[in-house]
């Protein structure tokens, strides 16, 4: 890369990276794992933003807090894996895959 390109890449990365990137990942993980109460609207919005470019939306799931929660979580994760294979490579896809891996303990 030329020096000029280096400068521009730093500029783009700064503008397109949010400081709360890690918490966003945690929010998605929590939603899938059912470990947290339903995410407040303002918390899930940044996650939804990531999906705009893909023409998709993320809807926050109300985590199951009943009996067989672990089984339900695993079924949900398997369903998500089925869906996520249709999404092109992206940060969102990476998030979902890592969350599913966590739930399925692989």
């Amino acid at each position: 890369m030329s020096g000029n390109t280096d400068v521009l890449m730093g500029y783009f990365d700064s503008l397109l990276t949010t400081v709360d990137e890690d918490p966003r990942k945690a929010i998605v993980s929590d939603l899938l794992a059912g470990a947290a109460a339903q995410a407040p609207e303002e918390e899930y919005k940044p996650v939804a933003t990531d999906t705009i470019a893909l023409g998709m939306r993320v809807i926050p799931l109300k985590p199951p807090l009943k009996v067989n929660a672990v089984a339900i979580n695993r079924i949900t994760a398997l369903r998500l894996l089925h869906v996520v294979q249709t999404i092109p490579p992206s940060r969102l896809k990476l998030h979902v895959l890592s969350c599913c891996a966590g739930v399925l303990d692989v």
């Binding site: 783009f12 700064s14 503008l15 397109l16 990276t17 949010t18 400081v19 919005k45 940044p46 939804a48 933003t49 705009i52 470019a53 939306r57």
Partner: peptide, 16 residues
């Protein structure tokens, strides 16, 4: 300020 390139995307998400 980090993330200032995403303001329009977030605004449009509100009008989805």
């Amino acid at each position: 300020q980090d993330g200032m390139g995403l303001v329009l995307a977030r605004s449009l998400a509100q009008l989805w």
